[in-house]
Design a protein around this nucleic acid. Structure first.
Lengths: 197, 197
DNA sequence: GTCTATAGAGTGATAGAC
DNA sequence: GTCTATCACTCTATAGAC
């Protein structure tokens, strides 16, 4: 990807995050990139193509990252902890893109929308499978895997809407809090391994 | 409020929910309301004023509803359960408005933005106080009240983004799942009252 | 209280020079 | 690969008739 194409992309991510996709104009992106608005169209065929490109990369990287986090990890509870931490870390480290991926899907054409939702569904399925596996193994009580997966994901994703780089809490500290909260929620009053009574 | 003013408001809520504030034009609202676009301005001075009116009402009603839910309830854990249920119920019952209130703040003027954020902060403080009270009383372990309050609220709020009226699960069934998940998360491995060992 | 007509600015995108 | 110029359209909002 040429330098200018990368610049346009990162300027767009910043603007879409701060102002929203529809409130951001091609002129805004051109100004931020230091070129004229017509020049944007040499790199991307349309504003929607630019949005789609950002969302597609984000979703692909997210799924790759989760799979890396889970590779070689054994034991259902440990796997779930790794998945939660991975999800939180990716969302905080690439906050802007993830925020856009969760709020600007309406800017896509019908076809592109379906493609991104398909990727999102596949990602959610990984968590639903972990929940079902954990229930089967007796680590978690019976529960609605779909609702619980939404709960876990939206919880961690929400971090990307208030997290401030260099703020009071580090990425790891936040991941710790969420990991404990979610695992306790999933176990619902069952004792931790080792027990405390 | 006149009939047409009410119609314009509810048409706007529907459109802002489905298409987003910036992607909805005054023409769209007029078409949905069965009048010409100029007539909108007899009822509301601007598009932004219409958005602000919707957000203000939603926030005020939300806070009133929570206070009603908590009135006369004793015991910190019971109060937290009531608060969670109230938050979930309100968000699912007035799904569209709440979705807008959580995604379209950027459409407001700086002054109106501050006003809504102030209301939202006051609402969040109620939950933070419940958490702190619970920690002090020994019902919940030490934790970051701010992060935990965000966790609780975003979790329940997220329901408003996927809930379908008349779908697989009722409002009460969803409230049950969230209530259990959150209370377990807050207690973090502590035994339920009565214990299970 | 709703209409028609329009102002005035901005939008995404294209043509063609360099 | 970036520029200037512009097209065709849409936007919010206002003026003034009825």
């Amino acid at each position: 990807m040429s330098d200018m194409k990368t610049t346009i992309k990162s300027v767009s991510i910043d603007l879409f995050f701060r102002k929203g996709y529809f409130a951001t104009s091609i002129s805004d992106i051109a100004r931020g990139s230091g070129i004229q608005k017509a020049s944007i169209y040499y790199h991307y065929p349309s504003k929607e193509a630019l949005l789609f490109h950002i969302l597609k990369c984000t979703m692909d990287d997210l799924t790759d990252y989760l799979q890396q986090c889970l590779a070689g990890i054994e034991g259902i509870e440990t796997r779930m902890r790794a998945a939660v931490r991975g999800h939180v870390r990716f969302h905080l480290q690439r906050q802007k893109e993830n925020f856009i991926a969760n709020s600007e899907l309406r800017g896509l054409t019908a076809e592109h929308y379906r493609e991104i939702v398909k990727k999102r569904d596949a990602y959610e399925l990984i968590f639903q499978d972990l929940i079902r596996e954990g229930t089967k193994a007796g680590a978690f009580p019976e529960g609605d895997a779909k609702i619980l997966s939404y709960a876990i994901l939206t919880l961690c994703t929400a971090g990307a809407s208030w997290y401030k780089d260099g703020g009071r809490l580090s990425v790891d500290a936040i991941a710790d809090i969420y990991e404990r909260f979610i695992l306790s929620g999933l176990k619902q009053g069952r004792l931790d391994q080792g027990g405390n009574c």
